Structure formats: structure tokens, C-alpha cells
Amino acid sequence: MKKTFQILFIFLFAVINAQNTANRFFYELTYKPNKDSAKLEKEMMALDIDQNKSVYQSYELIGLDSLANVMVTESLKTGNMADVNRIGGKKQSKFLHRIFKTHPVQEIVYNDQILMDYYSYRENPNLIWKISDEKQKIGAYNTQKATTDFGGRKWTAWFTTEIPFQDGPYKFYGLPGLIVKIEDDGKNYSWELKGNRKIDHIKDTLYMEGFIKQSGLSSSKEIPKEKFLEKYEQYKKDPLASMRQLLSQLPAGVDLPDNSITEKMREAEKKMKEELAKNNNSIEIQEKINKRK
């Protein structure tokens, strides 16, 4: 009887453990950040999938968040200020958004950071796919062609039924298998599957997002998509507006040590505006207000 209980316990543990694990699919994103330039850039993205949901995000963002977790933990243990140069020396992600899908997908949740604040919106992309008989081998997978219109662009996808997840990078989903490659007809954005591995579980909230929220330095709001687009447009025009608002709330009689902070803010704002102006080729272009990548 004791042996039977041991076998049952091992079986239940294996089942629970299997349910908690997830698959991480790595997509190389090749994109054109500036619509007036032919220059292409690349970034590795990750799509984490388990039985119930998926999360799409930058793999660079995952790495930076993990490093920030280590640094803050070390700082709290030792009482010493963290060496911010450790993060400054790492490649910074150009994509701060995270996209959540609950299976079966009825809607997606898009979460993004604008300066210190986090915003999210819900959306049903309502993707209508046209599946072709055309097939080709991409990497190790036998794939089939499908096309759709989304975000003001025409997209061609190649999916495989060898991986039974009806999902894909960014907001794409709904084909009878995992999307291995997808790109728009102008080759502004192209994702291609490069590998996968098991992970323990999907993180709904990144460490730094939770840490910043707990500190009270930022807010987190779910708003309609149109409001998000308006907020991002305002951010592009005045990137440090919220920072100036925080400084204006300092108690009366508190003086900044010198003018260097104001001067540094001006320099930072100039660089931010220049960078935002260069990144003018959003993934989705159908709205009058351009969306953030």
C-alpha cells in the first residue's frame, strides 16, 4: 500500500510539474525603424506559451529585468548602492511592450511603458487568414503559407502543424499551428523562429515593473486603445512632462542643489526626441495616430 501511494505521489507531482512548465520560442525580429531609411535592425524576441496563455516580449528585456533583480537583491543585502553601469553596459531593448493572450484567444492584452508609467489595453485583432496550398521547409519545420491584412499592412505567414500551438509573435494567432515566419509585404517587419526551450513558468509581471509600482514612483492603468495612442503621441511631443510634474510637487523650501539637474533634463529630452523621431515606422500604421512599436 505504501509503495502504491509513493507511485501515485510521483505521478501527481509529474503531472503538476508538467502543467506548470512552459515553452519559450525565440524569434529573430528584423525591422526597419525609420520609414525613410533602408537600414535594418535586429532584436531577439520571446514567445512564452503554456496550456492556458502566452506572453510575447523582447528577450533583451527579460535579460535586463533578470539583471535588475540580482542588482536590487544584492543592494538590499549589502546596503550598498547598486552599480548602474552594469545595466548601462548591456544592450537596451527598443521594445518595452508585452502582449498577453489567453487560450483560446478571444482578445489580447497589450501592456507598455511610457517613461515610468505602465498602460495596457484590450483588443480583438480579428485576424482573417487565407490559407494557401503553398508549402516550404523553414529551418527544421515543414510550413504552409497564409496571408492576412492587419494594422494597415499585408502579412504573409508560414505556420507549422508540427508544433500544436495556434499562436505566433506579436499580436498574430489563429492558424492551425505555430507561426514559424511572418513578414509584411514591404519587409518593414519580419519575425523568424530560431529555437525554443522549456522554462519553469510564465511571468505575468516583470521584476522591475512590480518593484517600481511598489515604490509608488509609477502608476499602472488599463485604458482604451485610443487613449493609449493619445498618451504616446503626447509623450513623443513632451517626453519628460511627467518628470517635470514630479519635480514641481517637491515641498516648498526644497531647493535643487544646482542647475545641473535642469540642464541634464534638457539634454535627455533632446536625445529622447531625436530617438523618437528616428523610430517613425510603427508595426501598425492604419490609425491616424501612429502606434508605438
Rank of each mutant, 00 (worst) to 15 (best):
K213Y: 07
V72Y: 14
I87M: 11
L67Y: 13
A38V: 10
S190H: 08
K77E: 08
L256R: 09
E263L: 08
E134I: 07
Q136F: 00
D238C: 03
E274N: 10
E192H: 05
I7H: 04
R197Y: 12
K32H: 01
T21E: 09
E123K: 12
N69P: 01
S93G: 10
T205K: 14
V70I: 14
T143Y: 03
E274R: 11
E263T: 05
A68S: 12
N23Y: 11
K198N: 10
L67G: 00
K39M: 11
L47Y: 02
Q136R: 11
S37P: 01
S54D: 06
P176H: 06
A46Q: 06
I261H: 01
K77P: 00
D238S: 11
T205F: 10
S282T: 04
I179R: 03
Y31S: 03
K203C: 02
S93C: 07
N290D: 12
E60C: 03
N196P: 01
K231D: 02
S120K: 11
E134S: 11
T156E: 05
R197A: 09
K137M: 06
G89P: 00
S66V: 02
I114Q: 03
A146L: 04
K198Y: 03
Y27R: 08
R244T: 01
D204K: 15
Y121I: 09
R292N: 01
E274I: 09
S37D: 11
Q57I: 02
Y31K: 06
N290C: 00
I128T: 10
Y121F: 14
A140I: 09
I7W: 01
K77Q: 08
G195V: 07
N142G: 09
D200V: 12
K53P: 00
G88W: 14
T30A: 05
N280S: 07
F100I: 14
S219I: 15
F11E: 03
D48W: 02
N188E: 10
Y59W: 09
G177Y: 03
N281G: 05
I87E: 12
G195W: 05
Y59A: 09
K53L: 05
S220E: 09
D258P: 04
Y207D: 02
I223Q: 06
T205W: 06
P239S: 10
K181G: 01
A146I: 08
T78I: 12
Y207A: 04
L247P: 00
Q51S: 10
K278L: 08
A46D: 04
N124P: 00
I16W: 12
D149W: 00
N280R: 04
D238G: 03
N142E: 13
N69S: 13
A18K: 13
L96V: 06
S218N: 07
G174F: 02
R98V: 11
T78A: 05
Y170M: 05
G152M: 11
A18G: 09
H201S: 13
I10G: 00
Y173C: 04
P104N: 07
P164Y: 06
T161K: 12
L76I: 15
I199C: 06
S75F: 15
N80Y: 10
F26A: 09
V105Y: 06
I179S: 02
G253A: 11
T102A: 08
A140W: 09
